[in-house]
Design a protein around this nucleic acid. Structure first.
Lengths: 243, 243
DNA sequence: GAAGTTGTTGGTACGTCGTACGATGACAAT
DNA sequence: ATTGTCATCGTACGACGTACCAACAACTTC
């Protein structure tokens, strides 16, 4: 019933199976993951097929299955590789919980920006080594607050949720702007506005839809919007930690 | 480069093409969307194939293509149908901006809960009629604040982002709990904790991983966590609106 | 009525995908 | 040399989205 894999799995979790290596294999999981991530970054997630990744590696398709049980595990590897990039330098953690959390948050966001395909895979939260490391860092960041375990956990999760939400909306907005304000969409919106059914939206947008589009993009992609929202969240958290 | 459709499209946007109807067709877009949504809710998003939806409808596969140009449009229809459910009753909007926004937010969350597959499609923000209606409602909700257009927009988006983030994390958590705390994952975590590389996490979790798992789920799935986070956000917004 | 037009249906087929199966080659131990 | 096992990957199967087109049905025009 859960949308994901039905788990045939007499197989063990990938993190518990060590990768082949006894007789000098030609590849490795990290190499495969790296190639797959590069491919996804370059040509989009839907370009990542077993055949294509194998080709990119200069190997036969089925060779991949010696390193990975199925495609889902490949994606798990990719996601964990990306998670490895969000770890921040140790010094960043030393300067109080707010800057520390902010640093981790910004690093997470920039990883999500680099790897947009991650956004589609946010739903499946299988923890991997790098996700654990990230979690550990987050805990270190809030160590000094003296808050309860539950409060710490909730704070970390709340910030993560904000990051995901922001990244999704931002990517969406960027796509829309990159599509150069598709005339079809424009026509649709124009018609809807003219119908009179959306007085508030019409008032907000004015009569010039193009200008309105520009305005929306400017607001949503404005520099510092992420930091501003994060600050609001941290303000709320700080207040609730003090009580 | 954007991961989505390369837009062959001499075709027009689905909302600008009226659906077939001149000679009493056997189906309709809303019917198709309804069936597809039910199927996705029941058996997960990956069960939604053109063949399967057609079968569910008692029609031939290719018949669908008379109502819809391709699968992507079917999904667009599904997403907009789900958006229709987030509209709230008019009275909810009358009682001040905070309760109004909160009502809309809760309605949005419950739609995301009913249709988990929506979470995977959050990235593609093609606006449909129901999304416009939802946006209009949100604007009505903040109408009384007297804030600038940009501030209103930013506020609405910020709340939406929180909702998405929350829904994603919650679904993840629910899945993990529903999988009955997979012994493989448990073994992996146990090993990592024992490695000594995660002192903070170890301290937080204690030595009983099962109890720790329960604790985390309790915190993250606690009643009212959504409302609490939302309140924090609205507090921040309220403060920033006043200045 | 008949004939023509055109909306509606869906069968067949092609190229893609994930991957099961099993043949082949390469190395290490005997 | 022989054997066993690791590593590679060709072939094939059943799913998928959908292009193409033949068939049918309903309305229009005479």
């Amino acid at each position: 019933m859960p949308s994901d894999l039905e788990a045939k799995s007499d197989e063990r979790l990938i993190w518990l199976r060590e990768e082949p290596g006894s007789r000098s294999p030609g590849h490795s999981r990290v190499e495969i993951a790296r190639v797959a991530v590069e491919l996804a970054d370059r040509e989009g997630f839907e370009a990542v097929s077993m055949r294509r990744v194998a080709q990119e590696l200069g190997a036969g398709t089925m060779t991949l299955y010696h390193y990975v049980a199925n495609k889902d595990e490949l994606v798990t590897l990719m996601a964990d590789a990306a998670m490895g990039e969000v770890l921040v330098a140790e010094e960043e953690l030393a300067s109080g919980w707010r800057p520390a959390i902010a640093a981790i948050a910004k690093s997470t966001l920039s990883s999500l920006r680099r790897h947009r395909w991650l956004l589609n895979r946010l739903g499946d939260g299988r923890p991997g080594p790098n996700k654990l490391r990230h979690f550990e860092q987050s805990l270190r960041a809030v160590e000094g607050t003296g808050a309860s375990a539950a409060a710490k956990l909730e704070a970390i999760v709340l910030v993560d949720e904000y990051i995901f939400g922001f990244a999704i909306r931002e990517a969406q907005e960027r796509d829309e702007r990159a599509d150069r304000w598709d005339p079809e969409v424009r026509e649709f919106l124009q018609r809807e506005m003219d119908s009179g059914a959306f007085p508030q939206a019409s008032a907000l947008f004015g009569d010039d839809l193009d200008a309105a589009r520009e305005f929306v993009a400017d607001v949503l992609l404005a520099d510092g919007r992420f930091e501003r929202g994060l600050d609001r969240l941290l303000d709320g958290l700080e207040a609730s930690l003090r009580t």
